[in-house]
């Protein structure tokens, strides 16, 4: 009961934050609200017992991406440009409502949350639960799947994230001085 109340309240806060992010034009406030959005969704993940997802959301959503967006904001203007509305809202609104209705219709025959007979619980999960500790010796089953059974997949993901990190550091990193701003040039002791 209490978890339902917490979930509903957090989801309502999420909706309020999302609408506010869309309607605001002060980018600093929007970044603050993004951080808040991440905290809220991490809270929802925790109430739904997805602790590892909540860990990731907190570290990436609230921590790194807030700092990266603030660093980007420091290099750009802090006001969104006002653009004249060039289209009618009715066609996009209809498309969104129809798509949303189709998605909600699709959720109707999804098994209930935490159902032990759901296909996700009966396909390979029992195999992993039975075999992972004798085969890998890792106490946490999620970790054994990520780091042992799908080790190469995780290595590829880490490579992608690492490359993206280097690209971001090259784009927003490096020291800029007044004279360099007038004559843009790469700082030799960058990178």
């Amino acid at each position: 009961m209490i978890d339902v109340i917490i979930n509903v309240t957090l989801l309502a806060f999420l909706a309020i934050t999302a609408v506010a992010i869309i309607r605001m034009s002060n980018l600093f406030a929007i970044i603050m609200l993004f951080s808040m959005f991440s905290f809220l969704s991490a809270g929802v993940f925790i109430v739904m017992d997805a602790i590892d997802v909540a860990f990731t959301e907190a570290a990436v959503g609230t921590g790194v991406s807030t700092v990266l967006m603030l660093a980007t904001l420091a290099l750009t203007k802090d006001q969104k440009e006002k653009q004249p509305v060039a289209h009618r809202p009715w066609l996009p609104l209809t498309v969104v409502i129809v798509t949303g209705s189709a998605l909600v219709y699709g959720t109707l025959d999804i098994p209930p949350f935490g159902d032990p007979d759901a296909p996700a619980q009966t396909h390979v999960a029992p195999e992993y639960l039975e075999r992972s500790i004798p085969e890998t010796g890792v106490q946490n089953v999620v970790t054994s799947v990520l780091a042992s059974y799908r080790g190469f997949d995780t290595l590829g993901e880490v490579t992608v994230v690492f490359t993206a990190g280097i690209a971001v550091m090259l784009l927003i990193g490096g020291r800029r001085r007044k004279e360099e701003l007038e004559q843009p040039q790469g700082d030799p002791d960058d990178a």
């Binding site: 905290f39 991490a42 907190a58 609230t62 921590g63 807030t66």
Partner: peptide
């Protein structure tokens, strides 16, 4: 979370 909040 407390640590991340502080850093942020």
């Amino acid at each position: 979370y407390a640590l991340i909040n502080f850093i942020g």
